[in-house]
């Protein structure tokens, strides 16, 4: 591992001071499960690591009055996975968490860290995009909110400035008559997905599709929603015909990259398969709930 200076601030102000002092020369260390492998392989050479694990107030899962949920910067995947509120208020997040790596990784890795790392094949960025999550970024003397749609700007890059810290991610309340599903295929259990889908479907009172989110991972340089397919679903009766059409649009509109785990053609095809399966799964859940 390359050498670096290590900083473990004891307060948020101290952390933000360090970030503003070092700017691009610093990396934030929370769980370290994405950053430390890169450093161990000497693919990342940060001069400073700012370990935020002891900053008070960040290790919290907070329900808001409208029924939304905020997850703080140092909450681990395991803690979120075991939190009752996550299952109750954000079932899509709860469905995605067990798919993140393996237990030992989830015990250290953080939800917010995974979002800030923005791996296009990771589950949580796609979940955040599907749910329209809001990101709370903070720096010395300022705080701002960024919509998920604006947050993921490219391969392993986000809208965060070097001196900003991602304080928390907020998930809005789930709409009534909503079903969710996360489907992915990966070469082995626990691997990053070859391609995956975080989906939500909401029905109107008449039982027709009111809105949906089809948010893919492993299908582009960032997590990506296929809005044409979402639009095509709107107003449709939920069933094989509508799902098939959505799947067709998905396969047509995605242009995923190619690697040893899957060709472009394969990823396009499987994205369609996942669309069908996830939509059916999500609708089933609504039936269950009703």
């Amino acid at each position: 591992m390359p050498a670096f200076a290590y900083h473990r601030p004891a307060s948020l102000d101290e952390a933000l001071d360090l970030l503003s002092r070092f700017g691009e020369d610093a990396k934030i260390l929370a769980g370290g499960q994405s950053l430390l492998p890169l450093m161990a392989l000497r693919l990342s050479h940060p001069a400073n690591l700012v370990d935020i694990s002891r900053v008070p107030g960040l290790n919290e899962i907070v329900e808001d009055v409208e029924g939304g949920l905020a997850i703080g910067a140092t909450v681990t995947h395991t803690r979120a996975e075991e939190a009752e509120a996550v299952h109750r208020l954000t079932p899509l997040v709860a469905a995605a968490l067990p798919l993140v790596g393996h237990r030992a990784i989830r015990n250290r890795g953080t939800v917010v860290g995974s979002l800030a790392h923005a791996d296009p094949a990771a589950e949580l960025p796609a979940v955040a995009l599907a749910l329209g999550a809001r990101f709370i970024a903070v720096k010395s003397g300022g705080q701002r909110r960024v919509a998920a749609a604006d947050f993921f700007s490219g391969f392993l890059t986000t809208d965060l400035a070097p001196d900003e810290l991602l304080l928390a991610v907020g998930f809005p309340p789930q709409k009534p008559r909503t079903g969710v599903s996360v489907k992915e295929i990966s070469r082995r259990s626990g691997d990053f997905a070859i391609v995956g889908l975080a989906a939500t479907v909401s029905l109107d009172e008449a039982g027709l599709i009111a809105s949906s989110a089809l948010s893919f991972f492993g299908a582009a340089s960032t997590a990506v929603r296929v809005t044409e397919a979402e639009e095509a679903l709107a107003g449709q009766s939920p069933g094989p015909e509508a799902f098939e059409e959505a799947a067709r649009i998905v396969s047509q509109s995605l242009d995923p990259p190619e690697d040893a785990n899957g060709t472009t053609a394969y990823r396009k095809h499987v994205a369609g398969v996942l669309t069908r399966n996830a939509l059916a799964d999500a609708i089933d859940q609504i039936g269950f709930a009703a």
């Binding site: 785990n261 899957g262 060709t263």
Partner: peptide
């Protein structure tokens, strides 16, 4: 690998380079 199986079954077009 899975993509090769679907190439063989004719579900997707083969990509020789991959």
């Amino acid at each position: 690998p899975p993509h090769r199986i679907l190439e063989l079954t004719g579900v997707i077009k083969p990509n020789v380079a991959s």
